[in-house]
């Protein structure tokens, strides 16, 4: 029982991170048909912005602000204007391939111009742990989970309640009608890119103290987010949350009770099973585009 608790706590914390990354994934897909193969690298990078700012001598909070702004500008605005916009009219595939190239570009740039070594990263959640049900639950896990869930709830409220959020929904569901209604579709799409950049930057801050800042750390994360997005439902924000958490739990339970050598395979079987029997995802609805 105690073991199970440990596994669940750990799985939830990891799953919440997957969810954060997966949400951005689905957002980009819905508003601009962008399948971003560099999403994992987008999570890896903001930590390096923060580290670079720290190296200049800024205090941690200022470095975090700098990292956030850099992420919004580079991974949000620049990514959209320089890469996505010119390619969008060519269709889904060339853009997807271009993001694969982007992922190589980001990874190797960090390796060449920063370091190939893993770097320690300060935690924004206090260290230490909480004694609960006879085991130690790290504050880090709790903090990661709470912050990730809070971010998701805020995002959902924003999309459902605020005027801008509803305009974004409309722009995603039917850009043509949205345009006729006078919604600035282009700006709405830009907003989703900014939201994605903010989410990956948050994920980066939360996960790097555990994963460490390293040029390769986006690889597994990007794949996990991709799987989480499909398992949950590629066209639903809450799908990404369900997908992320399910994936985190399944990974830990499978490694314990099935096989450690094949722990990487279980999520993939889950992915294939979902595609075969519930292609719209666990909580998605068939062929519907909403944010």
């Amino acid at each position: 029982m105690l073991n199970l608790l440990n596994l669940v706590v750990s799985g939830l914390a990891t799953g919440a991170i997957y969810a954060l990354v997966a949400i951005g994934f689905t957002l980009l897909w819905q508003t601009s048909q962008t399948i971003n193969f560099a999403q994992g690298e987008f999570v890896m990078l903001p930590a390096f912005f923060v580290l670079a700012a720290l190296n200049v001598g800024l205090p941690f909070w200022a470095a975090v602000v700098v990292g956030m702004i850099a992420a919004l500008v580079l991974l949000g605005v620049t990514f959209k204007l320089v890469l996505v916009d010119p390619m969008l009219r060519h269709g889904v595939l060339p853009l997807a391939i271009a993001t694969m190239a982007l992922s190589i570009f980001l990874k190797d740039s960090v390796k060449e111009f920063y370091s190939a070594e893993a770097q320690a990263f300060p935690s924004i959640v206090p260290e230490g742990s909480l004694a609960l049900f006879g085991t130690q639950i790290p504050l880090q896990s709790i903090g990661v989970f709470v912050l990730a869930v809070a971010a998701v709830v805020v995002l959902q409220q924003f999309l459902a309640r605020s005027s801008t959020g509803r305009q974004m929904q409309a722009a995603a569901q039917n850009p043509t009608v949205a345009r006729i209604l006078g919604i600035p579709v282009e700006r709405m799409i830009l907003y989703t890119f900014l939201i994605n950049a903010a989410l990956v930057a948050l994920a980066s801050l939360l996960i790097t103290p555990i994963y460490l800042a390293k040029f390769t750390s986006g690889e597994t994360l990007g794949l996990a987010a991709f799987i989480a997005a499909i398992v949950g439902g590629f066209n639903q924000v809450r799908g990404a949350i369900v997908g992320g958490v399910v994936l985190g739990l399944v990974d830990n339970l499978a490694a314990t009770y099935v096989s450690t050598q094949y722990r990487g395979a279980i999520p993939l079987f889950l992915l294939i099973a979902v595609i075969l029997w519930r292609p719209q995802g666990l909580v998605g609805r068939a062929e519907e585009r909403t944010v």
């Binding site: 890469l83 391939i97 982007l102 570009f105």
Partner: peptide, 10 residues
């Protein structure tokens, strides 16, 4: 190479 691929595809 990555830069080349991105520019080429754009």
């Amino acid at each position: 190479y990555a830069l080349f691929v991105m520019i080429l595809l754009a």
